[in-house]
């Protein structure tokens, strides 16, 4: 309540607030984005061989990386919400399952988890299929992209659960009491009062997770997903020019993460509110 008023960038109705004009100012970090994109474009045009050829070769990898990251992130948001609510549940079974999930997943390296999903999980499914005598399940073959998205979701969902839990707990208790005193059910209070505030509160760490997920998505290259990293390795295997290939791959990741970081801070500003 004390601190000074900060701009709440929700449009014109609050434009009279001191400092509100800074909302429209362009984020200086866009300069870095321009610089990196500029460097990449220069390399590709000035030294088209091999940079342009590398870019053409890995561009489908960029699409795969983007697809895996975005879809895993969407599922992560849902998994984290469920996990976070589970961690806060007063039902000991739900709380126990959610806690077990978080503790187990947090303790295993992501790479090991991905390898497990790709190599071990199908065998488990096939075994169950044989046991149940269902041919469709017994002949289960893993799909690399599916495995990648599943593995990333399960892992990042655990981290996200903890973020959501902290976010929900950071909403002052009196907010829920006020909602309940007005006759709202526990669900209504969560849905209309607690979660909308918690979600805004957790945007910065959630944004960080999104960027971390994009970078960690390169680990899926070991489970036969043709993402950016794997395509880079394939190109290098043929032409053996590590400096150019890995510089290009690094620049492409950098461009993606920088854009994502700008997007995240834009969303944060949009959703900001003062308590």
């Amino acid at each position: 309540m004390d601190g000074q008023l900060k701009p709440r960038p929700s449009g014109s109705k609050l434009a009279y607030l001191p400092g509100a004009e800074s909302i429209t100012r362009i984020d200086p970090w866009w300069g870095l984005v321009v610089l990196v994109v500029g460097l990449t474009v220069t390399l590709v045009t000035v030294r088209a061989d091999p940079f342009w050829r590398i870019l053409l070769f890995v561009r489908d990898g960029v699409a795969v990386t983007a697809f895996i990251t975005v879809s895993a992130f969407m599922f992560t948001l849902i998994a984290g919400m469920i996990g976070g609510l589970g961690r806060l549940s007063r039902n000991p079974v739900i709380h126990g399952v959610a806690t077990l999930y978080v503790e187990i997943v947090r303790g295993i390296p992501l790479l090991v988890q991905l390898i497990w999903w790709y190599f071990a999980f199908p065998v488990v499914v096939q075994g169950i299929g044989r046991w149940l005598n269902i041919a469709a399940i017994a002949n289960y073959q893993s799909n690399a992209i599916f495995t990648a998205v599943t593995g990333l979701t399960v892992c990042y969902g655990a981290y996200m659960s903890e973020i959501y839990r902290a976010g929900i707990q950071s909403v002052p208790k009196d907010q829920a009491e006020a909602a309940r005193s007005l006759g709202m059910t526990h669900f209504q209070s969560m849905r209309h009062v607690i979660l909308p505030q918690a979600v805004r509160m957790v945007l910065p760490p959630v944004g960080n997770e999104f960027i971390a997920l994009l970078k960690d998505s390169c680990l899926v290259s070991v489970v036969a997903v043709a993402d950016l990293t794997r395509r880079g390795r394939e190109f290098m295997a043929v032409h053996f020019n590590p400096i150019e290939v890995w510089t290009m791959v690094a620049l492409l990741y950098l461009i993606m993460t920088l854009f994502l970081a700008r997007l995240v801070s834009w969303v944060e500003k949009k959703a900001h509110f003062e308590r």
């Binding site: 907010q175 009491e177 006020a178 909602a179 909308p196 505030q197 805004r200 509110f273 308590r275």
Partner: peptide, 9 residues
């Protein structure tokens, strides 16, 4: 309530 407890968002 003493602390008003308006929904801040």
């Amino acid at each position: 309530f003493q602390s008003f407890s308006l929904f801040a968002h």
